[in-house]
Amino acid sequence: MDELATEELVEITVTVNGTVHRERVSPRMHAADFLRQRLGLTGTHIGCEQGVCGMCTVLLDGEAVKGCLLLAPQLDGRELRTVESLAQGGELAPLQQAFKDCGGLQCGFCTPGFLMTATALRESGRRLDREQIREELSGVLCRCTGYDGILTAVDRVLNGEQR
């Protein structure tokens, strides 16, 4: 509880999924905890808090970053996007639909991490073949799928059906 914390709280202003939030945060709190506990955006998951598993991947000013390696005060003045921003009006985004069509998820715990990583790839406009996509996605772990469905889904969205 904040009133028991000994350290000074830091005030930040951050835009998350298009909404501006002004919050006072502990300087020790990481961004994934901030999203989950402060904003109730529990789609961003936590798997290691060491920057290895990628469960906490979010977009910071359009770039995929690991939320557990980022402190909440570093979010000040930045723009953040999470998995909750992808579907519009109850319609799955093309990437989400592709994951669904290609068997890209099982337990779904890693899915937000992959979706955000792939969203950044897509928005970068880079042309990537399947092997390059494989490399790009290797910062997020999945223990259920063996990655095949995930790769197919991302490949399909980045490069179109014909491949």
Binding site: E84, K100, T111
Partner: peptide, 10 residues
């Protein structure tokens, strides 16, 4: 299972 998990609503 997919729709909720894909939208961060698991």
């Amino acid at each position: 299972e997919d729709d909720r998990l894909l939208q961060g609503d698991g």
